[in-house]
Amino acid sequence: MLELRLVQGGLLKKVLESLKDLVNDANFDCSASGFSLQAMDSSHVALVALLLRSEGFEHYRCDRNLSLGMNLNNMAKMLKCAANDDIVTIKADDASDSVTFMFESPNQDKIADFEMKLMDIDSEHLGIPEAEFQAIVRMPSAEFARICKDLSTIGDTVVISVTKEGVKFSTRGDIGTANIVCRQNPSIDKPEEATIIEMEEPVSLTFALRYMNSFTKATPLANQVTISLSADLPVVVEYRVAEMGYIRFYLAPKIEE
């Protein structure tokens, strides 16, 4: 028996909106510690890892570990039917082939339940070691989204370079080139507008903008995004999900030609 009640149901709506274009089908893993997911895009170049810790739910009952295979587009369709301020409850029986999403309005005057069929999904989990990164950039998520969107009108790839001077995003295409440099800015008055760069060593890596743009669908979840880089390793683009967890996107760097 699984029953997860999330007062901030709008968070789950935003999580699904940020996943559904990258991954078609995925297993949500439910355990005593939380509600999580690890899935790759169809080309196995990008991976998303989601964790919503059990403490973040108003009520969290998970009698035994369960894996719920869901089509993320269909799950997003159902969650779109919830209002942003609805309380969302996810329910499933151990042997059931369906999951129920219950939406309650904040004053309890409207209660809806949507039942969705589950799927059997063969998924391969990758072991992601804890890594020390050469550079970690924390910046406003909307700024990062704007940069990825702007650069993708000019080129297909972005070179992210971190030096003491700041973080540089560069692209090149048929019509020309573009470079955007963001300098460190502690923004003490408005921490959500800060750009903080922790650098052990300068690092420069190239990534496909198509995936970066997909990751920025998570922008409504958090004011800040963290971009962690090391030479010859996948980048980690992380958005915090309120106080309850995170959504992390991993993207393999392109090999320089």
Binding site: M40, S43, V45, E124, H125, L126, G127, I128, K254, I255
Partner: peptide, 14 residues
């Protein structure tokens, strides 16, 4: 040439 490696080049299956 495809210069986009897959994630399996970096992370092993669990």
């Amino acid at each position: 040439a495809d210069n986009q490696p897959r994630l399996s080049a970096f992370f092993a299956p669990k």
